[in-house]
Nucleic acid binder design. Structure first.
Length: 495
RNA sequence: GUCCCCAUCGUCUAGCGGCCUAGGACACUACCCUUUCACGGUAGAUACACCGGUUCAAAUCCGGUUGGGGACGCCA
């Protein structure tokens, strides 16, 4: 076996945020590169001037960075300048390369200038459909000779360059065999495609053409990409053959679907990495989740660190069937990651969400206080975005008697409990109340009032957080200053 | 319409001819823990799309049917 170094690529087209399907493709390629000690290349496929934007490229780069998928070659993550020996890495900057290749094809007679107008082409297709044939464009009966074509071009006419699949005198039908890394042997009849455009009449090259040339020139060895490209592969194989380039190995991944088994799209809710980031999902969890949507670990373990993912990764464990995106399981996975995070890290990741909700938690600077608070709350959080409604209990300015407390408020002993609770608080000397101190205070309130059980417990809870449902008091009370506890019970007594 | 891909619990999946009375995970149900909720623990219910072959033996191999998806662009 030759030991050609593995080179894989992720080649998004910059038309919006990175979709989770794209993120999965990127992850798989990244993992394969790391596993084999190869290179991971980012290539920007922006030949569609209409849809591609600079802004989208920036967004996708940021999404990839957020996911922690570092590329070895491609646009620099910060400056976007080309980074690596096989650049440029943006197809819009490689136009000359494509044009030269197209010329080679034209000169060898493998491709031809096509002067036909859209209207003419449409008419041809319509006629084909009517006669029950696939609407594939073939070369005209007599090709415009090259010298004449060039003269017409020089006079300002425009023409596309088409790859000629069937040349006169060649067998009409051939079979191309693709040994797909995930699907096995796939056979394509050559008449599956008509003569396809390589260069548009406006001079811009087309996806299939760029893709094949770039994969060859960038010495890509393996291509893991979505299943939608499976039939494109035939055209690319024809191009490799025409140029005498070696073909990379391909592996076509199945789709990620929505709950209705349709391709996952905006109408299913969150689909881009950015959506998930905003909803409080963590990149580690999202990566781990999408990893498992189309791939499985040999021993069935599901929570895997990046190191373990690299260690275990092999394309032999891809699942060729499509997968429905299960956001309930993603939620579970996110909560697992969230709980496992060191408190310091968790605290810092929570900040944007607390800030956005307008919460200021000054006590957070105290490491011990923060530790307490996070231990108390993190088992109730599934996403980072769950934090505000939990931490709200700690912000005096947000305290109020919630509608859910109405029943408790009406109990006959409630007022008595609140009064005793308040006087016990006032007797307490220190600024904060520890957990055992709270238990003692609670006992004294019980003794003084003769109230016990739910009748005792719920009113105190309401006096602390304004509702009978929430985090355990024994962890919550020590997080609140005595002054704010008094302030709260006062407001209850007034209500 | 033509060509291509796919088919195991509700969902993600294990399984690559006998270890399968089909295993794990999420979700679900019950119980335990808990002076609420959550966390945690234990137990349970639920699947090989269908029909034919091949074989001593089929979830696994082959053919067909059905169902889903994709490609057939001067989109990527």
């Amino acid at each position: 076996m030759s030991s050609t170094p593995v080179r894989v690529r992720f080649a998004p087209s910059p038309t919006g945020y990175l979709h989770v399907g794209g993120a999965r493709t990127a992850l798989y390629n990244f993992l394969y590169a790391k596993k084999t000690g190869g290179e991971f290349i980012l290539r920007v496929e922006d030949t569609d001037l209409e849809r591609s934007t600079e802004e989208s490229m920036r967004m996708q780069i940021n999404d990839l960075k957020w996911l922690g998928l570092k590329w070895d070659e491609g646009p620099h993550p910060e400056t976007h300048a080309d980074m690596g020996p096989y650049g440029p890495y943006r197809q819009s900057h490689r136009k000359e390369i494509y044009l030269q290749h197209a010329q080679k094809l034209v000169e060898s007679g493998r491709a031809y200038y096509d002067f036909r107008t859209d209207a003419e082409l449409d008419a041809i297709k319509e006629r084909l459909i009517k006669t029950g044939k696939p609407p594939q464009i073939e070369a005209p009966e007599t090709l415009v000779p090259l010298t004449e074509a060039r003269a017409r071009l020089a006079k300002g006419e425009t023409a596309a360059i088409r790859f000629q699949v069937n040349r006169k005198g060649e067998p009409e039908k051939r079979e191309y065999v693709l040994n797909d890394l995930v699907r096995g042997e796939v056979k394509f009849p050559s008449d599956m495609v008509g003569d396809f455009v390589c260069i548009r009449s406006n001079g811009m090259p087309v996806y299939n053409f760029c893709c094949a040339i770039d994969d060859a020139l960038m010495k890509i060895t393996h291509v893991f990409r979505a299943e939608e490209h499976l039939s494109n592969t035939l055209r690319q194989m024809m191009l490799f053959e025409a140029f005498g380039y070696a073909s990379p190995k391909f592996g076509h991944l199945s789709f990620i679907l929505g709950p209705d088994k349709q391709k996952l799209s905006k109408r299913h809710g969150a689909t881009s990495c950015n959506d998930f980031r905003l909803k409080g999902y963590m990149p580690e969890a999202l990566c781990n989740f999408i990893l498992l949507s189309g791939w499985s670990s040999p021993d069935g373990r599901e929570i895997l660190s990046r190191e373990e993912q690299i260690e275990l990764f092999t394309y032999e464990r891809f699942n060729s069937a499509p997968a429905v995106f299960d956001d309930t399981k993603l939620l579970w996975m996110n909560s697992m990651y969230l709980r496992a995070l060191p408190h310091e890290e968790l605290w810092s990741r929570l900040q944007p969400f607390l800030k956005e909700a307008g919460l200021t938690i000054p006590q957070g600077d105290d490491v011990q206080w923060r530790d307490h608070a996070l231990s108390a709350f993190k088992t109730s959080m599934q996403t980072l975005a769950d934090a505000p409604k939990l931490f709200e209990a700690l912000d005096d300015s947000k305290f109020s008697l919630k509608p859910e407390a109405t029943e408790v408020k009406a109990w006959p002993d409630t007022l008595k409990v609140w009064a005793a609770w308040k006087s016990e608080l006032e007797k307490h000397a220190a600024k904060y109340i520890t957990e055992p101190e709270f238990a003692a205070i609670q006992d004294r309130v019980k003794d003084q009032t003769g109230v016990k059980g739910k009748q005792l417990f719920q009113p105190i809870r309401v006096a602390v957080i304004g509702t009978p449902q929430g985090t355990e008091l024994k962890v919550l009370v020590p997080l609140l200053a005595k002054s704010s506890l008094i302030n709260r019970v006062d407001r209850c007594l007034k209500a």
